[in-house]
Amino acid sequence: MEISRHWRLRKQRYALVGEVCPHCEAKLFPPRDICPECGQEARTLYQFSGRGEVYSYTTVYEPPAGYEENAPYTVALIKLEEGPIVTAQLTDLGDQPVEIGTPVEMVTRRLRQDGDERGMIVYGYKFRPALARVAA
């Protein structure tokens, strides 16, 4: 069981909480404590909007252990509107085509379970095509 390593990251995983560098304003996700832009310490929490666009994407047909139940699934690089790129699954695609540039938004979903069905459920961010507003 890997309880503590997932628990430790819950803020990042559930809600895309990263950091903002207090020195140069760079937005950082994942949080990394030393700002890659200016090299100074960055530990100020920052709530990302969760909006971004697809930078690249592909489909996994041969999943690693722990991900078999969801295969095939789409993984992507998402460029967040604040700047950083994150690796994440795309979800709720249905029959919607994906393209580079597709606007997406963050949702919190089940990523996997730790071990078998007796293990804890690991939740975290995924992205889905931005919800269309149809009703007026």
Partner: peptide, 19 residues
């Protein structure tokens, strides 16, 4: 931040190639 999303090295190479 990568493997937890079900990313494999092969899928990552595919991301690079598509881009």
């Amino acid at each position: 931040y990568e493997a937890v999303q079900g990313l494999t090295p092969t899928a990552q190479a595919a991301l690079l190639m598509r881009r």
